[in-house]
Measured scan of single mutants.
Amino acid sequence: NITNLCPFDEVFNATRFASVYAWNRKRISNCVADYSVLYNFAPFFAFKCYGVSPTKLNDLCFTNVYADSFVIRGNEVSQIAPGQTGNIADYNYKLPDDFTGCVIAWNSNKLDSKVGGNYNYLYRLFRKSNLKPFERDISTEIYQAGNKPCNGVAGFNCYFPLRSYGFRPTYGVGHQPYRVVVLSFELLHAPATVCGPKKST
């Protein structure tokens, strides 16, 4: 009989979020998941679920829940969905086509923008091939755009693969920082350890 609540607040209220190319993952297990707390949290810009209804989450049990978190621009949030393409979905964070879970995003301009620009948040701009679902690539190898080998030196046709967002408070909404948490639900042939409040007695 599990009684402790799942530590969703640790994920959602973290002081610093990860850059999207180096997205953070927390495994959540052996706890009671009260999703209504999240669902009623006012400032969400997006709360979209795939393969599961957000209002039914509290009735369900899962083997594991993974909480992935990172920061992207407002106009990139739409790429955090199954079957998407674009710089983020291709080179930074890719969801599987059969994704079961929820994508939760909110504007973090007050936290993550600075006058003069916040350059701490990076994304991958160049990559030889697209990421596989949930693949994480933190390499900083110089990207070779031409035929000539770069030998690890940036220059003509040789690019550092990461780019900084440089968030400023005055940017338009599409270019403002958004914090994103992706909850993915794993249902294995194993005992369920993460259940909603109704199922955990």
Rank of each mutant, 00 (worst) to 15 (best):
K48W: 03
G83P: 01
V182R: 00
V103N: 00
C102W: 00
N107D: 05
F185Q: 00
A192G: 14
V180P: 00
N118L: 03
R127N: 05
V103D: 00
L95A: 01
C150R: 05
N157P: 07
G166N: 14
D9H: 13
T193L: 10
I104E: 00
T63Y: 09
I104T: 01
C150A: 06
A145D: 11
D90Q: 10
A18M: 06
D68E: 02
W106C: 04
G174T: 12
N64H: 13
N30K: 06
N40K: 15
N130W: 06
G117C: 05
C49W: 08
G74V: 03
N147R: 12
T100M: 13
L131C: 04
R27W: 05
N40I: 04
F41R: 09
K132A: 11
I28E: 01
R25I: 01
N130E: 12
I138K: 11
G172P: 13
D137F: 01
E135M: 06
Q144V: 08
H189K: 12
F126E: 14
P197N: 14
F44Y: 10
Y123F: 10
A105L: 03
S29N: 11
A89G: 04
I104R: 00
A42D: 06
A190Q: 14
P149Q: 13
V115A: 14
G117E: 09
W23A: 04
Y165D: 05
N13F: 00
G152R: 11
I80G: 02
P96N: 05
A190I: 08
V181F: 02
R73C: 07
C150I: 05
D112I: 00
P191F: 05
F45Q: 15
F17H: 03
K48A: 06
V52Y: 05
Y35H: 05
G152T: 09
K128C: 08
L162H: 04
D68T: 01
A33W: 13
D137E: 04
R163C: 09
Y178R: 02
F185E: 00
E76V: 01
Y21D: 05
R179Q: 03
Y171I: 11
K114D: 13
G174S: 11
T85G: 07
R16W: 08
S29M: 08
S129H: 12
I72G: 01
C150M: 05
L183S: 00
L162F: 10
N24H: 11
N92I: 01
A154S: 15
S69F: 03
K26P: 01
E10V: 07
P82C: 00
L187Q: 15
N24T: 14
P191Q: 11
T170A: 12
V115E: 15
L187E: 10
L188R: 13
L38V: 10
G172Q: 14
C61V: 10
S164G: 12
A42T: 07
A192E: 12
G155I: 05
K56A: 13
Q144W: 05
A145S: 12
I80D: 03
F99D: 00
P161N: 07
T55S: 14
V32S: 10
P43T: 06
G51V: 01
F17V: 04
L5W: 09
K199F: 14
G172F: 08
T201S: 14
T3D: 09
L162P: 04
W23G: 04
C102N: 00
W23D: 04
N75W: 05
F134Q: 09
F160H: 15
R124A: 04
K56C: 07
R136D: 04
Q79A: 04
F167R: 03
N109W: 06
R136K: 11
Q144P: 11
Y39V: 09
A105S: 11
Y159R: 13
L111G: 07
R16A: 11
G117Y: 07
A42N: 07
G152S: 11
Y143S: 08
S129E: 15
N107M: 03
C150S: 06
R124L: 04
K26Q: 09
P7G: 09
A33Q: 07
P149I: 11
D97E: 11
I72K: 00
I88P: 02
I88Q: 03
N24P: 01
N58H: 10
S19D: 08
N24D: 12
G166E: 15
Y93H: 02
G51T: 01
Y93P: 01
F160D: 14
V182S: 00
Y178T: 10
Y119I: 11
P7S: 10
S184R: 08
L95H: 00
V153N: 14
K48Y: 05
L60H: 08
L60D: 05
S108Q: 03
P161G: 06
G101V: 00
N107G: 05
Y123K: 11
K94M: 01
L60T: 10
N118A: 09
I2K: 13
A18E: 09
N147S: 14
A46D: 10
L122M: 15
F41P: 06
P177C: 02
Y39D: 15
K114F: 09
G86Q: 02
C61W: 06
T63P: 06
L183N: 00
Y91Q: 05
D59C: 05
W23V: 03
A67S: 02
I88M: 02
Q144A: 12
R27L: 09
A18W: 03
S113V: 06
A154Y: 09
Y93D: 02
W23N: 04
P197Y: 15
N92F: 01
V37T: 14
Y91N: 08
D98P: 06
H175K: 10
V194G: 12
A190V: 10
T140E: 12
P43K: 09
K199V: 15
Q144H: 08
C195H: 11
N13I: 00
C6K: 03
N13Q: 04
L57K: 03
E76A: 02
E141S: 11
G74A: 07
N4T: 12
T55Q: 14
E141T: 12
N13V: 00
D34V: 01
